[in-house]
Design a protein around this nucleic acid. Sequence first.
DNA 1: GCTATTTGACCCCT
DNA 2: AGGGGTCAAATAGC
Length: 299
Amino acid sequence: MGGDVSAWSQRLSGKKKKIIEELVQGQESANHLQILFQETGRHLSSSKKEALIDKILRSFDQTLAALSSVDSAEVSTASNQDSADTRKKPAASKEKRGCYRRKRAAQAWTIVSDTMEDGHAWRKYGQKEILNSKHPRSYFRCTRKYDKGCQATKQVQRMEDGSQMYRTTYIGTHTCMSYSSKTPPLIVTNSECWETGTVDDGDSEILIKHQHHEHSDPTPTSLVVKKETKEETSTTPSDVTDLDCIMWKDIVGDGELEYCSEPAEMVSNMYPSCTEISPNFEMDFGIKPLEFEFDECAL
DNA sequence: GCTATTTGACCCCT
DNA sequence: AGGGGTCAAATAGC
């Protein structure tokens, strides 16, 4: 075991270095771009712009890829620590209480929809009044949690603006593939900017329509993205590609769907399993720079 | 009787 | 300390 830990930490420090290098490079490139824009404004040659943008995007891409692998290393190590963790907890007053560990946010992403339905089978396990919120938040877990070990959960809360919309935060990914054929309309958005994309699951096409755009041409644009139809062929959960993630990638992968970030934690946590969507997604859509927080053990 | 939902308690995390 | 995520007993619905 000791050798494994040593090798792991070496591998991790290498990744850390890579992450820092890429972030620094991305930052420098961004700064450079900013200066160029300030100096030359719109007259900057497009090839130069493209080169810089490419460089920035590549840096973030590399960073996210490196982060992704660090994250999985963290996860496996954390679980090892869990088993060895002798942290004493006061005995629960009720026998089985207090034996759960709150999840550190896995991949998480938020959608706003006019329905809570999303084609998955969920079981409600809790509801809470949330401070400064008119509506309670409901907590759901996948119904296959126990028979398939599916870790997916979601939180649903009515929007504050009085509309019949629900903000749904998905945490973790489905490993059970209990996807039904019926997927309801889905709107991928953020409550503040209300840049919406409607996803209608008729057969296999998803239509995303931009209703407005604050920072660019207000003319509505639309795009059609093919939705992959996945067969339930995998036999082991670890081989299963998460459909939610696929859908998300399909939705945002090629299009200019704006995603105004949830708290940085949400976005950064979404990337590890959806790294393909990261570069353009982030840079094209004006998402604030991610603030990565690294655990000491990870760096 | 089985399964899903409700709800108050418990406890993690910031 | 308090907000919020999870647990699990009680309850409802079929």
